[in-house]
Simulated scan of single mutants.
Amino acid sequence: MNYTELDNYTRKWIFTHASMPVPAADLEQIKPLTQARSAQLWQEHISKQSPDADHFEQGDWAFDAKIWSTPEDWQDAWDDDELALPEAILTVIKWEDNTTVYFCYEKYNIIETKWGVFKRNWKNFLFFDDGPILLGRKQKQALWFQSNGTYQLASRP
């Protein structure tokens, strides 16, 4: 089994919080991966050696600062009443809404969902903003959210 039931997910509250509840139809498409599946995906697509974004090192594709765009702000959009993902992200990432995406908090904590679900509920995902990376299945673009309220884009190998 690759998934953990959302009801058993330790961070379920970020999707059911009274101030920003995720619609039931979207909740069904938010699938936390098991720790084993998360670790496998992390090792295949992010790092074979680093457990989280704070510890990237030589040999990790994400370690190369030259591949990342100039940091841009996401915090202002998160704080305002508008629900939409920042326009600067949407102009660069043109994935189909049904593209499978992985929101990678760290090696043992990854959520699988669809790009459309993420776009509608991105603020919930970013209740924890300690360096998560968003990857699209079969997509080269990556989006790295920093805890200082900025994000950066890159094309991964």
Rank of each mutant, 00 (worst) to 15 (best):
M1P: 15
N2C: 12
T4G: 03
E5H: 11
L6N: 10
D7T: 15
N8E: 13
Y9C: 05
Y9D: 10
T10E: 13
T10Q: 12
R11G: 09
T16C: 06
T16N: 08
T16I: 09
H17Q: 14
S19L: 10
S19W: 04
S19T: 14
M20F: 12
M20S: 14
V22Q: 09
V22M: 06
P23D: 15
P23C: 10
A24H: 08
A24L: 09
A24T: 13
A25G: 05
L27A: 11
L27M: 11
L27S: 09
Q29K: 14
I30A: 10
K31F: 02
K31H: 09
K31P: 08
T34W: 05
S38P: 06
A39H: 11
Q40P: 06
Q43S: 14
Q43F: 05
E44K: 10
E44R: 12
H45L: 05
S47L: 09
S50P: 04
P51V: 10
D52H: 11
A53S: 15
H55C: 09
H55F: 07
H55M: 04
F56M: 05
Q58H: 11
G59V: 07
G59M: 09
G59D: 03
W61T: 14
W61K: 11
F63A: 13
A65M: 11
K66C: 05
I67E: 09
W68P: 08
W68D: 04
S69N: 06
T70N: 08
T70R: 13
P71I: 02
E72G: 01
D73F: 01
W74D: 00
Q75C: 12
Q75D: 12
D76A: 15
W78D: 08
W78A: 11
D79T: 11
D79L: 14
D80A: 06
D81G: 15
L83M: 08
L83V: 10
L83R: 13
L83H: 09
L85W: 04
P86I: 07
P86A: 07
E87L: 07
E87W: 03
A88L: 10
I89D: 02
I89F: 01
T91H: 11
K94V: 01
E96L: 12
D97L: 12
N98A: 11
T99S: 07
V101D: 00
V101Q: 00
F103Y: 13
C104F: 00
E106M: 13
E106G: 07
I110D: 05
I110S: 06
I111T: 12
E112L: 05
T113D: 04
T113K: 11
K114S: 04
W115V: 02
G116V: 07
K119C: 12
R120E: 04
R120T: 08
N121D: 00
W122Q: 02
W122A: 01
K123N: 02
K123G: 03
L126V: 03
L126E: 01
F127T: 10
F127S: 13
F128S: 09
D129F: 04
D130C: 06
G131I: 02
G131P: 02
I133K: 02
I133P: 01
I133A: 05
L134S: 03
G136C: 06
R137M: 13
K138Q: 14
Q139R: 14
K140R: 10
Q141A: 13
A142S: 14
A142G: 13
L143K: 00
S147R: 04
S147H: 12
G149A: 07
T150K: 06
Q152R: 15
Q152F: 01
Q152P: 04
L153H: 05
A154V: 02
A154Y: 06
A154S: 08
P157C: 07
P157H: 06
